[in-house]
Simulated assay, not measured.
Amino acid sequence: MRKEPIKEGITIFGNQVRNTRIHLNMTQEELAYEVELSPNYIGYIERAEREPGIYQIIAISFALGVSPSYLFNEVIVPEECKRSPE
């Protein structure tokens, strides 16, 4: 599988985290405190420089008051990755 679509998904996630956090007038420090991560790590996630695990994804979404899927809602699955249910 090509890594470009995955990297794009990570970038979209980071952008959604940043946009939602800013919309809530929340600082990186406040979000970091809520999810027990460092503010630097939150910055890395928002800039797609780190790949958070499922625990961090869920913790961040809950701290922002949104579902985990909301943070991925703009990710588009490439045609070559789509499977049809049988």
Rank of each mutant, 00 (worst) to 15 (best):
H23F: 03
V66G: 02
E34K: 15
S38F: 12
C81P: 00
P85K: 12
N15I: 04
R18N: 12
A32W: 03
A48Y: 07
M1N: 11
G43E: 10
M1Q: 13
K7S: 10
G65S: 08
I76A: 05
N73I: 07
Q16E: 14
N19C: 09
Y70T: 14
Y44R: 13
Q16L: 10
Y70M: 09
Q16V: 00
E46M: 05
S84R: 10
N40P: 01
E51Y: 14
I76R: 10
E36I: 07
E30A: 15
Y44A: 12
R2I: 11
I60N: 02
N15R: 14
Y70N: 10
G9K: 09
M26R: 07
F72H: 02
N25S: 15
E29C: 00
I42Q: 05
Y41Q: 13
E86W: 08
T20F: 03
I58R: 11
E4T: 10
I10S: 02
A48T: 04
S84W: 07
Y55R: 06
Q28V: 02
Q28H: 11
P85H: 08
P68H: 06
F72S: 00
E34L: 13
R2W: 10
R47P: 01
E49L: 12
A48Q: 06
V35N: 09
E34R: 15
L24E: 05
F62I: 11
E46N: 06
T11C: 02
F72K: 01
Y33C: 04
A59Y: 05
I42G: 04
F62E: 15
P39A: 13
E51D: 15
I76C: 01
M26V: 08
M1W: 13
I12D: 04
H23A: 12
I42V: 15
M26S: 07
I54V: 14
K82A: 00
I12S: 05
P68Y: 06
T27L: 04
T11N: 04
H23C: 00
E74G: 00
V66N: 03
E30W: 06
G9T: 05
A32Q: 03
S67Q: 10
R47A: 13
F72P: 00
L64A: 05
G53E: 10
N40Y: 14
E8K: 14
R83V: 14
I22G: 10
Y41L: 11
I54C: 07
E36S: 13
V77D: 08
T27R: 05
S38K: 12
R21Q: 05
L37H: 06
E34F: 11
T20L: 09
I54T: 13
Q28S: 12
N73M: 11
I6G: 05
C81R: 11
R50C: 09
S61M: 01
F13R: 02
S67I: 00
R50A: 15
I42E: 05
E30T: 14
Y33Q: 14
E4N: 07
E4W: 03
I54D: 08
E49D: 06
P85C: 04
Q28C: 09
Y41K: 09
E49A: 06
A32I: 03
P68I: 03
K3Y: 11
R2P: 15
I45S: 03
